[in-house]
Design a protein around this nucleic acid. Structure first.
Length: 507
RNA sequence: GAUCUCGUAGCUCAGCUGGUAGAGCACUUGACUUUUAAUCAAGGUGUCCUGGGUUCGAAUCCCAGCGGGAUCACCA
């Protein structure tokens, strides 16, 4: 094992601590009575400037900086809420003749990054900084590797930032320690999810769990990961969606079920795609996609409000307004609006002609539905910046969706576009088992034509529908994509703690 | 998967047309009892991503590989 100079020095310090009878990794709990942010927010002084509270505090965290000035030192402690300054004077922590605790342990054997616990009282320095005057400290956990030292001056300028994306993603633990805004992003994401969960629970939604290992990967058009079950000696797929399982629960008599579903798709990775990602799906009996549009607007408005404190959310250079209601436009009108052509009456040959003229890449496996989707994707999708429901898709690209109540050839489906990206996809669910069987059979034809994303026939799902499913509307909302918007992050990797990367090699 | 680009100290980076490896911070030693990007003095950082090649000589030029990023393709 190759050790750098600094790592060797820290290991030597470990030995010296042990020689002094100090356990660098003590087992017992340390009493924490207060956190840094709380002190900074609520510290008070009387008229003479004498502190009135926090005169007996005990807190713990990482030592993040240390400025030794002879017999006194200033240091910074970083706990889960932020940083607070420490003032440590030699004669306070080592009142007797033996000054080892200060001269050796504090000044020499502690390193930046070490976990320590401190007890003391809070005061304000001459420079105005709220500070803990330490009377007692204890090493709680030694850091054997040096953290990147990121410094910030008064104007907020950052020096020597820890910025290498590879290192930040691979060693998120370090990223979180030294880049406080990263923690902020993830807290925001968690708040967003909590807000959505509250919204659903308040309306009678029931949170459920359904299988991740599936014998038939259904509910979406995507290439799955394949794994193998040893005892049964059969292949299993990691789920690409949970849709068909949630609908089985609607068959079973629940009115409203939801699941934050970790899905896995064996496809490319880029700034908007990770092999595993989270979709919130929910299904509500006796509703249709029109109801679902209203519910989606309300859900997103609340999520934006709870997460950002406003419905006008800054995303990159633009402001996205999450306040309901959102614009609605059919996919044909959307294409008309942005490509200037009416594809609503075209057959497959005509659509191919249009794609050719627009220099849109196509191949022989694509049917009418996919061609229309292509044209929309190339010419219109990225133009919808403000939240917009794109409605009424062609039946060929929606095998699980009920046919439109009044428009032949279309289905009752919408996708929600925000900032030029699909964030949600919803339908009035197909509950006619005979129609569903025919749609699955069409998928088999597509598969034979070479479409490797066409759906398998799920016979158990058909059997469930044959027992009867109430009219139902369902939706999938891309939680990572939504988090990217509400947290104003350009890349999905910045809203996932551990984005997928090529495995690291250690030698 | 394709193209472009990057890889030098713990971190951020410089290193020109090839000539003994550099800075700031961090680190080590010392001074300093209200500092705050603390300051002052002194000190050493290293598989220049890996492996080949060209050359008297390669961090530098060439080839291959590994890893990252960006763009594109597939997709949410």
């Amino acid at each position: 094992m190759h050790l750098s100079e600094q790592e060797i020095i820290r290991r030597e310090k470990l030995e010296k601590l042990l020689a002094l009878g100090i356990d660098p990794f003590p087992p017992e709990a340390y009493e924490v009575t207060v956190h840094a942010a709380h002190i900074k927010e609520f510290f008070q002084e009387d008229a003479e400037g004498k502190p009135v509270n926090f005169q007996e505090v005990s807190l713990a965290g990482r030592l993040m900086s240390s400025r030794v000035m002879g017999k006194a030192s200033f240091a910074e402690l970083q706990d889960s809420t932020g940083r607070i300054q420490l003032y440590i004077s030699r004669d306070d922590i080592a009142p007797g003749d033996d000054k080892t605790l200060y001269n050796e342990v504090f000044k020499k054997l502690l390193d930046l990054g070490d976990f320590i616990g401190v007890k003391g009282h809070v005061f304000r320095t001459q420079m105005g900084e709220i500070t803990v005057h330490v009377t007692e400290f204890k090493l709680l956990g030694k850091a054997l590797r040096p953290l990147p030292v990121v410094k910030r001056d008064e104007e907020g300028h950052t020096f020597d930032a820890f910025t290498d994306p590879e290192q930040r993603y691979r060693m998120r633990y370090v990223d979180l320690v030294v880049n406080p805004e990263v923690k902020g992003t993830f807290l925001k994401r968690t708040n967003m999810v909590a807000s959505i969960r509250r919204f659903l629970n308040e309306r009678g939604g029931l949170e459920v769990d359904t299988p991740v290992l599936q014998a038939i990967p259904g509910g979406a058009a995507a290439r799955p990961f394949i794994t193998h079950h040893n005892a049964l000696d059969v292949p299993f797929y990691l789920r690409i969606a949970n849709e068909l399982y949630l609908k089985r629960l609607i068959v079973g008599g629940f009115d409203w079920v939801y699941e934050f579903s970790r899905n896995f798709r064996n496809e490319g990775m880029d700034r908007t795609h990770n092999p595993e990602f989270t979709i919130l799906e929910f299904y509500v009996a006796y509703k249709d996609y029109l109801w679902m549009m209203q519910t989606t607007e309300a859900l997103l408005e609340q999520a934006a409000m709870d997460t950002c404190g406003t419905t006008d959310v800054q995303v990159g250079e633009t402001i996205i307004n999450f306040k309901a209601p959102y614009r609605r436009i059919s996919i044909y009108d959307a294409i008309k609006e942005h490509a200037g052509i009416d594809v609503s009456a075209m057959d497959e040959a005509e659509l191919r002609e249009v794609c050719k003229k627009m220099h849109i890449e196509i191949d022989g496996s694509m049917g009418k539905g996919k061609l229309i989707d292509k044209i929309f994707g190339e010419k219109a999708e990225h133009k919808f910046i403000q939240p917009t429901f794109i409605t009424d898709y062609p039946v060929e690209m929606s095998p699980l969706t009920k046919k439109h109540r009044s428009k032949p050839g279309l289905v009752e489906r919408f996708e929600l576009m925000i900032n030029g990206k699909e964030v949600a996809n919803a339908y009035t669910e197909l509950n006619d088992p005979i129609d569903q069987r025919e749609r699955f059979e069409e998928q088999v034809t597509l598969m034979e034509r070479g479409d490797d994303e066409a759906m398998f026939i799920d016979h158990d799902f058909l059997r469930a529908l044959e027992y009867g499913m109430p009219p139902t509307s369902g939706i999938g909302i891309g939680i990572d994509r939504l988090a990217m918007l509400l947290c104003n992050q350009y890349s999905i990797q910045d809203v996932l703690f551990f984005p997928q990367m090529r495995p690291e090699k250690f030698d």
